[in-house]
């Protein structure tokens, strides 16, 4: 049991992105609640979830923003990339179109986040191997070429879900240890020790509001 006054030492902001229906919300739900959410409605907006994990003996609070995948919201969801320490980019292994769009998601991520943001590619629905439309090898190659971490996972069975979230956190934590990620940068997506006065993710929101007094 930890003896310090805090339950965790860091807050990492994550975003989950990808086409509509690839299972972004189900991945979040599986990760935070350990349950599969059948008949999950389309996300109209940005869902928010949190969980405390442990990396190298450090407790880390993940603040996860699960974005709407619908194309018409694309312009709006771009607001949420800023200040993400981790981006989980999801496609559906049974629908090639969702894989084909990865380039555009990746472009958005690269242009809207900072260089130290860890991007993790998740091929979801690997429980539906019979309906597979994208091979593992192909996606792995795409991930390697773009320097992304990659797993195939299933929000339904829970396979690799934990791993994807934790691996991302490990990589972020590593970046902090190596000094590659500047904690003081406003948009690092990482906060060290919670302080009174608002979290990293919400500070962006606060800024937005400040200018908005019409």
């Amino acid at each position: 049991m930890s003896t310090g006054p805090y339950s965790y030492s860091y807050i990492f902001k994550y975003i989950i992105i990808g086409d509509m229906g690839v299972g972004k919300s189900c991945l979040l739900h599986q990760f935070t609640e350990k349950k599969f959410m059948a008949d999950c409605p389309h996300t109209i907006g940005v869902e928010f979830g949190t969980r405390i994990i442990e990396v190298s003996g450090q407790k880390i609070k993940l603040q996860i923003w699960d974005t709407a995948g619908q194309e018409r919201f694309r312009a709006v969801t771009r607001s949420y990339y800023r200040g993400a320490a981790g981006a989980l980019m999801v496609y559906d292994i049974t629908r090639r179109s969702t894989y084909n769009h990865l380039n555009s998601w990746l472009t958005d991520t690269r242009s809207l986040t900072n260089p130290s943001t860890v991007i993790f590619l998740i091929g979801n629905k690997c429980d539906l191997d019979g309906q597979r439309d994208v091979t593992y090898e192909e996606a792995k190659q795409f991930a390697d070429e773009n320097g992304l971490k990659f797993v195939e996972a299933s929000a339904k069975t829970g396979e690799n879900v934990e791993e994807a979230f934790l691996e991302t956190a490990k990589k972020i934590y590593q970046s902090i240890q190596d000094g590659r990620l500047d904690l003081n940068a406003a948009e690092s997506g990482v906060q060290h020790k919670p302080s009174h006065g608002g979290g990293g993710a919400s500070s962006d929101q606060q800024n937005n509001k400040d200018a908005c007094s019409c």
Partner: peptide, 21 residues
Amino acid sequence: ENIAKGAAPIPARESVVRYQM
């Protein structure tokens, strides 16, 4: 409201964990 922000009730959470345990 500070729960989600991760700001305030951290000691609370810690104490709840202890209490639960």
